[in-house]
Simulated assay, not measured.
Amino acid sequence: MFAVYAAEPNAENPLESLRVGEKDAPVAPEGWVTVDVRAASLNMHDLWTLRGVGIKPEQFPMTLGCDGAGTLEDGTPVVLHSVITSPGYVGEETLDPRRTLLTEKAQGAMAEQVVVPARNVVPLPSDLSFSQGAVMGTAWLTAYRMLFVKSGLRPGQTILVQGASGGVSTALVQIASAAGYRVWVTGRTEAKRALATRLGANAVFESGARLPEKVDGVFETVGKATWSHSMRSLKPGGVIVVSGSTSGPDPSADLQRLFFLQMRVVGSTMGTKEELADLLTFCATTGTRPEIGLELPMEQAEQGFRAMLDGDTAGKIVFTR
Rank of each mutant, 00 (worst) to 15 (best):
Pro125Gly: 13
Gly108Val: 04
Gly88Ala: 08
Leu95Gly: 04
Val149Thr: 14
Leu102Lys: 02
Gln157Pro: 08
Leu101Lys: 06
Asn120Met: 08
Tyr89Val: 05
Thr142Val: 00
Gln59Glu: 15
Leu95Cys: 02
Val149Pro: 03
Thr158Gly: 01
His81Pro: 00
Met136Val: 07
Asp127Thr: 10
Ala134Arg: 14
Thr138Cys: 15
Arg98Leu: 10
Val114Phe: 08
Gln132Asn: 07
Thr85Met: 08
Thr71Asp: 15
Pro125Glu: 14
Ala106Leu: 05
Glu104Asn: 07
Asp74Val: 12
Asp67Lys: 13
Trp140Lys: 00
Val115Gln: 14
Lys105Val: 15
Arg145Asn: 10
Ala134Lys: 14
Pro125Ser: 14
Arg154Lys: 15
Pro125Cys: 12
Tyr89Glu: 10
Ile159Met: 07
Leu124His: 08
Glu112Lys: 15
Asn120Thr: 10
Leu50Glu: 06
Gly75Trp: 03
Leu124Tyr: 09
Val79Thr: 04
Val135Glu: 09
Gly52Cys: 10
Glu73His: 13
Glu92Trp: 09
Gly88Leu: 09
Leu128Gly: 01
Val78Tyr: 06
Val116Gln: 02
Val122Phe: 07
Gly75Thr: 04
Leu101Pro: 03
Val161His: 01
Ile159Trp: 03
Gly65Trp: 04
Pro155Phe: 10
Ala143Ser: 10
Thr138Ala: 15
Arg99Thr: 01
Pro155Val: 09
Ile84Glu: 06
Thr158Ile: 01
Val83Ala: 07
Arg51Gly: 04
Lys56Trp: 12
Tyr89Lys: 08
His81Asn: 03
Val78Glu: 04
Asp67His: 13
Gln107Met: 07
Val78Leu: 11
Leu141Gly: 03
Leu80Val: 07
Val79Phe: 02
Ser151Pro: 05
Val53His: 00
Ala139Leu: 11
Asp74Pro: 12
Trp48Pro: 00
Asp74Glu: 14
Pro123Trp: 00
Ser86Gln: 12
Thr142Phe: 01
Gln107Phe: 01
Thr103Asp: 00
Ala69Gln: 06
Asp74Tyr: 12
Thr49Lys: 00
Pro125Lys: 10
Ala111Trp: 09
Val121Asn: 13
Ser86Cys: 10
Lys105Cys: 11
Thr100Tyr: 00
Thr94Lys: 07
Ala109Gln: 02
Asp96Arg: 11
Arg99His: 11
Gln113His: 14
Lys56Tyr: 12
Gln107Pro: 04
Ile159Thr: 04
Leu102Asn: 01
Val53Gln: 01
Ser151Arg: 05
Leu153Pro: 00
Val115Ile: 15
Gly91Glu: 10
Leu72Ile: 05
Thr63Phe: 06
Arg119Gly: 06
Pro61Arg: 13
Leu141Pro: 02
Glu58Asn: 09
Leu80Phe: 02
Phe130Asn: 07
Pro61Val: 09
Arg154Thr: 15
Gln107Ile: 03
Tyr144Thr: 12
Gly108Asn: 06
Leu147Arg: 02
Arg119Ile: 05
Val122Lys: 02
Val90Tyr: 09
Met146Leu: 08
